[in-house]
Design a protein around this nucleic acid. Structure first.
Lengths: 189, 189
DNA sequence: CGCATTAGCTAATGTCATTAGCTTTAGCGG
DNA sequence: CCGCTAAAGCTAATGACATTAGCTAATGCG
């Protein structure tokens, strides 16, 4: 019985990777175990079953997307920042088609670690919106608008729901321009 | 062996109903069968296994959402129509939280029936956008923007991803206003 | 009324997640 | 070096589902 040298992190990363490689097939423990040359029950020494694996991937994915988006906004503000973030968001999603859907699922109530990661992502958006001097509910509405629009496009695109033979880059660029314009006058109107 | 009087339609409707009642638990054939007081394999006489059931629910859901949205736009145009459609879209989704996610999944390639239903929905949006005199790629971009924004908000809302304690109605109304404004100047700019 | 069709059933198989409990490895203090 | 404990991995067993094969009984049409 040579040891395989697993760890929670390794299992979760492998799960995430397998998910991205074939987003169609549902992730299962047998596949993860097999990819390590290990029997399925062995994984339970490292993760808390399927729910634990999913939670781990969710946290990993949210953190990764969050930092990609945050980085894209460094040194930019307002329209520039919004555009950069939108591009980074979509790029990350296209590169991680399996993980992406997990980034929008809510944390389990009371799961402080996952709540923290989710919140960190929101904070990035809030910081950028600060450049528009939006306050209170207006800022929340604007954040929701921003997230909704990005998520909607990316979700529909990755699900293959945009059937028309028209360039997606172009459509997305146009959508982002509309977001920027909308945010310009968000407080007024 | 008294007959239960099943039919493809009945099975599919029951599946859809169960899905809406507890969107969290994945749909399974045992539950559907049990709800009819019938053994699981009996369902195969009416539907083509799990994939067939899912396809049936998908078609049902797309048709239902499509007609709700279409009806809402009757007798309205431009901003009025857009607003009415957006409200109808969200209302339908909140009333059918289990079925909603299926409405955005792409039909299997070659499945003419499902493709037709999906297309019918798009056509409704195109008709309304005709009021803005958008042509070709511009119309496609605008449609994508519209769908993305609605879907994004509704998806995030039904997944419980909007955590902040700020009124969702208000945020959605504000989002819809931004869509209307964006469409006003879609061709120019 | 007889017969073909079809609905529903039981039995069997396969996949997957999960738990219990065993065995061996690894690493640490003497 | 040696033994001991903790942890890693294993096998075996169970239970939920989906699916298929093949039987039996109800239905409905001539």
């Amino acid at each position: 019985m040579p040891r395989a040298g697993l760890s929670a992190g390794a299992v979760i990363e492998r799960g995430a990777q397998l998910l991205d490689e074939s987003p169609a097939d549902a992730l299962n423990l047998s596949t993860v175990a097999e990819s390590f040359g290990v029997r399925t029950p062995s994984l339970y020494k490292h993760i808390d079953g399927m729910p634990g694996l999913q939670r781990g991937i969710r946290i990993l994915a949210k953190a990764s997307l969050g930092s990609a988006v945050a980085q894209s906004a460094v040194g930019r503000s307002r329209g520039d920042a919004i555009t950069a973030m939108a591009m980074a968001y979509r790029r990350w999603a296209l590169q991680h088609p399996g993980q992406y859907p997990l980034t929008t699922s809510a944390p389990l109530p009371g799961d402080t670690e996952e709540i923290e990661v989710s919140t960190a992502f929101l904070d990035v958006i809030f910081s950028v919106l600060a450049g528009y001097e939006l306050e209170g509910d207006n800022a929340v509405d604007a954040t929701r608008f921003f997230r909704s629009t990005l998520h909607g496009f990316v979700a529909l695109e990755t699900e293959g729901s945009f059937a028309m033979p028209v360039d997606l880059e172009r459509s997305y660029a146009r959508l982002v321009r509309s977001i920027v314009t909308a945010l310009e006058s968000w407080g007024r109107e």
